[in-house]
């Protein structure tokens, strides 16, 4: 756990090169999965993934270069929302190409890496008792249901229909 929180390094050209290659590999796998699972055309999907990769790259770069203490997740969200904002000139093209990529295609590839990455923690996980598992399950279930119920109540109160 200590290695999780220690020094950081500055962006180098070498680093950006690595990011681009990794994003390219990821994009290709997603496009193949997207084609097999949902039959979306390969060319349009590739453009869609290129757009998403570019947004990610800019967000990740901003996190490291700008002197603000803001996570890349926030930058990426804001850039994505801004580019697809209905009155933006970019929005039609962005929405068209990005909609060729099913969310579930991205998630399926993403979770393959998560699965391999979680292998490292397996030894520690096996050492945990059943009580730890009970608490974890309760924490996740109540966090999820808590916000679902609150959201439902507010949506009903404000009269939102499906």
């Amino acid at each position: 756990m200590v290695e999780l929180i220690d020094g950081s390094e500055n962006v180098s050209v070498h680093g950006i090169f690595n990011w681009i290659l990794l994003l390219t590999i990821f994009s290709v796998i997603v496009v193949i999965g997207n084609y097999i699972g949902y039959k979306h055309p390969i060319a349009d999907s590739l453009i869609g993934m290129a757009i998403l990769s570019l947004i990610t790259l800019v967000g990740v770069w901003m996190e490291r270069e700008l002197p603000l203490n803001i996570s890349s997740i926030i930058y990426i969200s804001v850039i994505g929302i801004a580019l697809a904002f209905p009155s933006m000139p970019t929005s039609d093209a962005i929405i068209h190409y990005v909609s060729q990529i099913e969310l579930l295609s991205i998630v399926t590839v993403f979770l393959a890496y998560v699965g391999i990455g979680m292998g490292k923690s397996w030894g520690e996980f096996k050492a945990m008792g059943p009580r730890a598992i009970i608490i974890t399950v309760l924490v996740i279930a109540s966090t999820y249901l808590g916000s679902a119920v609150v959201a439902h109540v507010i949506l009903t109160l404000t009269g939102v229909s499906v």
Binding site: I81, A84, F85
Partner: peptide
């Protein structure tokens, strides 16, 4: 490590839907 970068793609996809 790669997964931390790929989270970005996921977030970007959701953000485009949000903007839309």
């Amino acid at each position: 490590g790669a997964m931390m970068l790929f989270i970005g793609i996921l977030i970007a996809k959701l953000a485009v839907s949000s903007g839309q």
